[in-house]
Simulated assay, not measured.
Amino acid sequence: MTRTKGFVFAAMVTIATQAPVQAADSFDFSEHRVDRVFQGKLRLPDFKKRDKDFGFFKTRITNEMREGVTFAGEYSVVQFGCGTGCTNVVVANNRTGQLYDFPRGGEFNQALTLGFQLNSSLMLARWYTDSLWETCVIEAFVFEEGKWIAKEALAGKGEEICEGDVAAGATNARGF
């Protein structure tokens, strides 16, 4: 390597290593923005074929979809009870009619509470880990191309973390 090339290379490495690295905030809705909001004609699920596994919840899903888009620019979030402290979640695409399971819910994620926004693909989930509802977990998921990507999880105790707004609970759990 010539002396000039070596100097340029060393200078580039020095600049690259001194540049500030800023990680995306897994719990920040604005870090996961979607550019468009679907405003076309609603397309309902195919409960006879593709979405037949969700047929038992047809009325609930259909009614929620008719309320309009609530998540990630083209989805409706449908949460329904399955017993004491138990809920299930389905995410419905208002443009295509396709339904997606959410990775949390049921009896093992007690008192599941969600945080989401119309213009963001981020979904926050908070649930209790114990039967006394003292310790909660707050998780960040990003929904991309029909798949849930787990980003980060926090555990905590107390009203300031485990009650109220899920995003505020995440901020409190991290001490921000």
Rank of each mutant, 00 (worst) to 15 (best):
D101S: 09
Q79K: 10
G175R: 02
T84N: 08
V91C: 06
L122A: 03
T135A: 11
G40D: 08
G85P: 09
A125R: 03
V78Y: 07
A24D: 14
T17W: 07
F143E: 11
L44D: 06
A111N: 12
T171A: 14
F71M: 10
R104A: 04
G169L: 04
K41D: 13
A167M: 07
A111M: 09
Q110A: 13
T70R: 15
S76F: 06
A140Q: 07
T2I: 01
F57T: 09
M1I: 05
Q22I: 14
G164N: 08
D101G: 06
A153K: 14
G6R: 15
D35S: 15
A92P: 05
M12W: 06
M123F: 05
E134D: 10
K147M: 11
F57Q: 15
F7H: 05
T4A: 13
K147S: 12
D51S: 10
K5N: 11
L124R: 03
V21R: 08
A140D: 09
D165K: 07
A173W: 03
V77C: 12
C82Q: 04
W133M: 12
A92E: 02
V77H: 12
I161V: 14
P20H: 10
R104G: 01
V34C: 13
N94W: 01
F116G: 05
R36F: 11
S76G: 06
Q79W: 02
V77W: 11
